[in-house]
Simulated scan of single mutants.
Amino acid sequence: MSADRVVVTVTGEVDMSTADAMYQAATKDNTSAATLDLREVTFFDSAAIHALLQLADRFGEGLVVHPSAQVRRVLEISGLSTQPWLKER
């Protein structure tokens, strides 16, 4: 993590019981940018999408998301697969 960017690595399921924890981890310490490593996420629901969109609103161009195949599929179905913050690694 640099002084202005937080890197959050998420594994397992992101759902209504864990999405807020992902959001909180990415927004701690008043950082101005965030990288979400979601390559080990196995389930991603609408609460997770909502948290992700909140992070996109907060960080704008400062957000980078590295998705797993499952996350990419959910974002494709949701019409979010062309967002500039979505990156392959």
Rank of each mutant, 00 (worst) to 15 (best):
residue 27 T to K: 00
residue 86 L to P: 02
residue 25 A to I: 05
residue 35 T to F: 01
residue 2 S to D: 00
residue 10 V to N: 05
residue 48 A to Y: 09
residue 13 E to R: 15
residue 48 A to R: 08
residue 69 A to D: 10
residue 14 V to R: 04
residue 55 L to P: 00
residue 88 E to N: 14
residue 56 A to K: 13
residue 61 E to V: 03
residue 87 K to D: 04
residue 61 E to Q: 13
residue 72 R to T: 06
residue 15 D to N: 14
residue 77 I to C: 00
residue 48 A to H: 08
residue 68 S to N: 07
residue 21 A to H: 00
residue 61 E to P: 04
residue 46 S to D: 14
residue 17 S to H: 11
residue 12 G to V: 11
residue 89 R to N: 08
residue 79 G to W: 11
residue 3 A to H: 10
residue 5 R to Y: 05
residue 84 P to G: 09
residue 86 L to K: 07
residue 20 D to G: 01
residue 65 V to T: 11
residue 84 P to I: 03
residue 10 V to S: 07
residue 64 V to A: 13
residue 41 V to P: 15
residue 16 M to Q: 10
residue 46 S to P: 14
residue 2 S to A: 09
residue 89 R to T: 10
residue 3 A to I: 06
residue 36 L to E: 02
residue 12 G to R: 06
residue 70 Q to E: 14
residue 88 E to C: 04
residue 23 Y to C: 00
residue 69 A to P: 04
residue 33 A to C: 08
residue 17 S to L: 07
residue 76 E to D: 08
residue 23 Y to E: 01
residue 38 L to H: 05
residue 5 R to N: 11
residue 7 V to T: 15
residue 63 L to K: 09
residue 21 A to Q: 10
residue 15 D to E: 07
residue 10 V to P: 09
residue 6 V to C: 10
residue 8 V to R: 09
residue 19 A to G: 04
residue 68 S to G: 03
residue 29 D to E: 15
residue 5 R to S: 10
residue 9 T to G: 04
residue 74 V to R: 03
residue 40 E to A: 15
residue 52 L to P: 06
residue 6 V to M: 13
residue 27 T to G: 05
residue 60 G to E: 15
residue 32 S to A: 11
residue 47 A to V: 07
residue 43 F to T: 10
residue 52 L to R: 03
residue 85 W to S: 04
residue 79 G to L: 14
residue 8 V to W: 05
residue 6 V to Q: 15
residue 27 T to R: 04
residue 73 R to G: 00
residue 3 A to E: 13
residue 89 R to M: 03
residue 80 L to A: 05
residue 18 T to S: 15
residue 6 V to Y: 01
residue 8 V to G: 08
residue 57 D to Y: 03
residue 21 A to I: 02
residue 2 S to K: 00
residue 22 M to Q: 00
residue 75 L to G: 02
residue 38 L to P: 07
residue 69 A to T: 13
residue 67 P to R: 09
residue 30 N to M: 06
residue 82 T to L: 04
residue 82 T to N: 10
residue 30 N to K: 13
residue 12 G to A: 09
residue 14 V to T: 11
residue 38 L to S: 04
residue 62 G to T: 09
residue 9 T to N: 05
residue 48 A to K: 08
residue 44 F to L: 03
residue 77 I to N: 01
residue 70 Q to V: 13
residue 38 L to Y: 08
residue 4 D to R: 05
residue 9 T to H: 12
residue 44 F to Q: 04
residue 77 I to F: 01
residue 45 D to C: 12
residue 26 A to Y: 00
residue 58 R to T: 15
residue 27 T to Q: 02
residue 52 L to Q: 06
residue 39 R to Y: 03
residue 6 V to G: 09
residue 46 S to E: 15
residue 49 I to N: 05
residue 61 E to C: 02
residue 11 T to I: 10
residue 66 H to C: 03
residue 84 P to T: 09
residue 2 S to H: 03
residue 75 L to E: 01
residue 51 A to D: 07
residue 82 T to D: 14
residue 29 D to I: 02
residue 22 M to T: 00
residue 76 E to T: 11
residue 17 S to M: 05
residue 14 V to P: 10
residue 23 Y to K: 02
